[in-house]
């Protein structure tokens, strides 16, 4: 198996954290190989933020370090969806935060899964900053790419003690979307 994942949104939406948690969960707790390259505009909050992940169970399948055609994508904002939609396979699985994404391209055969991650985070958790973990939960719950327990261990490791419960709560919220 080899997946290319593209996670994109605006700076401040926690895009890189999704990538980091996925990377740790896959590489340390799921015996998978991962390459993740991050890009963001350092100067301005609100600019493009993007994480490209290649995940495989075979080290030899990790070649080019960036996404060429994503199997799976998360778009947390309309601007980045427009900008990077050409990087997603025509039959790719795409997660969108409906809070900020209203229009989807009509000429692709994406399987689109949508929820208002940010509104959910605000309403259910009381903190919009964990919308990213809701999205990650949605992705894990529907793709079964990685065992959710591995993701929770990764959350513990990456976000630190103070925020880990809040993030895991948001992650579980995402896991149960549509269940």
């Amino acid at each position: 198996m080899r997946y290319e994942l593209l996670i994109a949104g605006r700076g401040g939406q926690g895009i890189l954290l999704i990538g980091r948690v996925l990377g740790v969960a896959a590489s340390k707790y799921s015996n998978l190989y991962v390459t993740c390259s991050e890009s963001y505009v350092a100067e301005t909050r609100g600019g493009d933020s993007r994480a490209d992940l290649i995940i495989s169970n075979n080290e030899e399948e990790l070649d080019f370090i960036k996404v060429r055609k994503a199997d799976i994508a998360i778009f947390m904002h309309q601007a980045q969806l427009v900008k990077f939609s050409s990087l997603v396979k025509s039959n790719g699985t795409v997660y969108v935060d409906e809070t900020y994404v209203s229009e989807l391209p009509s000429n692709v055969g994406w399987r689109v899964l949508r929820a208002s991650y940010t509104k959910l985070a605000e309403r259910e958790i009381g903190n919009i900053r964990v919308a990213n973990m809701v999205a990650l939960g949605h992705l894990i719950g529907t793709t079964k790419l990685i065992n959710p327990e591995a993701v929770e261990m990764a959350i513990d490791e990456v976000v630190g003690e103070e925020w880990s419960e809040l993030n895991k709560k948001a992650f579980r919220l995402g896991l149960n979307i549509g269940v």
Binding site: Y33, C36, S37
Partner: peptide
């Protein structure tokens, strides 16, 4: 710079 900042197992 590219290698410096990519994350891998």
């Amino acid at each position: 710079a590219t290698l410096a900042h990519i994350w891998e197992r």
